[in-house]
Amino acid sequence: MSDVLLKVSGVSVSIPTGQGTVRAVDDAAFSIKKHEVFSLIGESGSGKSILGQAIIKLLPPNAVFSGKVELDGREISALSEKEMQKIRGKTVASIAQNPYLAMNPGLRVGTQVAEPMRAHLGLGKEDAKDRTRGALKYFDILPPEVREREYPFQYSGGMLQRAMVAMGTAADPELIIADEPTKGVDVLKRRNIAAIFQKVASEGCAFLLITHDVGFARAMSDRIAVNYCGQILEIAGKDEFFKEPLHPYSKALLDAVPERGMHPIPGSSPSMIDVPEGCRFHPRCPHKTKSCLSDPPVVEIDGRYVRCWLYA
């Protein structure tokens, strides 16, 4: 088999609401190679979390999904919930944004970290306990014999985040989907999360990082996808992307980062219900032309993908 781990093609998700249908994800296509750290960056409300949920089939019940998700050459978007449960936590693990909300407050941390091992690797109680201690120790949760018997509220935020990573990696997944791991976290803790992720990634685990933190994505990833208003506008290798972003939105987004002088993007993000026709960025784009009123094509330039008429 090729070295492609996850292949997402033509995925669209729409969610009917009282005000109209939200087209949260529109025609998303990308692939993640084995051992690769892939970042999906974009502003809040651009549909990046929904795309992450769509991959592991944890969408809200009223969401309408179309498209194809392949994991290791096997189509998982058509699997039943029962089969999906065998994949979640085993091959693909997800790490949620807020560890206090994601962990069960009434179960000991050790039990929760051991759960994926017991469920997916079929380990007995004692074996799982040994491995849990090893995992806690690996992530600097010391001493593991004491810490495994504690409850989430007894942990500090950073430590619980590490415990959650320990739980996510417990069954040796091939891909970890991390949704906004650095939101609302100060610089020192953010750096620590980056250090832990790097540690896990160095052991060969692929990552899909969903984040709005451009600096974090830059420090961590091999390739970057830019999401805007439900569409992926650009996919590029990290170095090329930060050296020379192609899409006007990517350029504007990078210019808004404090390191580059915080230049605001004119206008405001469009509503996801009433999206602009054609290119979704055209009302705010400095390079807009008449052709921007029709849907832009996805152009491939030296292995990079960009959805813009400028390069067509």
């Binding site: 600097d140 430590m159 610089v187 020192l188 750096r191 980056a194 250090a195 790097q198 600096g215």
Partner: peptide, 18 residues
Amino acid sequence: RALLDAVRYVSLDVVLQE
């Protein structure tokens, strides 16, 4: 200096102790 290193993600191979 530690804060600045954190912002620039310097020496990520060490997890800082809490």
